[in-house]
């Protein structure tokens, strides 16, 4: 079963806010000068910010903010965030892999940016019955 796609807009302002909230001030997430110096095309989103947005999609599908039992991803491709008002977009979809007898639902999640997968092995287990 496929779950309905959710889309998240990501701008530079979002990265600055996430840096402050998370305490991750690595300059590749806010300085084009530093990002390009280390070989990136430009400022990229924190992997953990992408993971947090995908987590929002997961709790959205679960219907409860406290329903996630397990959640893991592999970061495979950077999310480049241009310095304009639109930024970029991350689209998140998921497929139900398994529903267990003890009320757990295992999801296989796909996150893409500009049509390219940015995560692999993205899996979440949610509690479906409270």
């Amino acid at each position: 079963m496929e779950l309905p796609a959710q889309t998240f807009q990501v701008t530079r302002a979002d990265l600055v806010r996430y840096a402050g909230a998370s305490g991750d001030f690595n300059p590749i997430h806010w300085s084009d000068r530093v990002a390009t110096k280390v070989g990136l095309p430009g400022v990229i989103a924190h992997g953990m910010f992408t993971m947090a947005l995908v987590g929002r999609a997961v709790t959205g599908w679960a219907g409860s903010p406290d329903a996630v039992v397990e959640y893991g991803v592999r970061f495979t491709r950077p999310v480049v965030v241009p310095d304009d008002d639109q930024g970029t977009e991350i689209e998140v979809t998921a497929r139900v892999r398994e529903v267990t007898e003890d009320g757990l639902t295992r999801l296989e999640v796909t996150a893409t940016c500009l049509g390219e997968k940015v995560l692999s092995q993205a899996r979440a287990t949610i509690r479906t019955a409270r």
Binding site: D66, V68, E70, G72, V73, Q121
Partner: peptide, 12 residues
């Protein structure tokens, strides 16, 4: 480089 991240929750 951060490669993978995983959480297994007992509770939130």
């Amino acid at each position: 480089v951060h490669g993978d991240q995983r959480f297994a929750y007992t509770r939130p």
